[in-house]
């Protein structure tokens, strides 16, 4: 089963984590919302599957390209 890494596109901090590990996700579902330069940046699931891991929590500072979550792909 393929897994997909969800990385941060910006440097900033985690505002809200909306989904918990184990949640079923569809491509485009918002997993968490980051905040950078007074803007809210939604982090979306890149693929259908299950949210296997969430590696950050609210208030955490994140760097660009930092791993935020891992999605286990649904079987084709």
């Amino acid at each position: 089963m393929a897994s997909y890494e969800v990385e941060s596109e910006v440097t900033g901090n985690v505002w809200k984590v909306l989904l918990k590990p184990g949640a079923a996700v569809s491509e485009g579902d918002v997993i968490m919302i980051l905040e950078s330069m007074k803007m809210e940046i939604p982090v979306e699931a890149p693929h259908n599957g299950t949210l296997a891991e969430v590696l950050v929590q609210p208030e955490d500072q994140v760097e660009e390209d930092q791993l935020l979550a891992i999605i286990q792909a649904a079987q084709a």
């Binding site: 910006v10 440097t11 900033g12 950078s36 330069m37």
Partner: peptide
């Protein structure tokens, strides 16, 4: 603004 011209995502550095 320090942001991507297409995606409008903020850019730091």
């Amino acid at each position: 603004y320090a942001e991507d011209a297409q995606t409008l995502l903020p850019s730091t550095g």
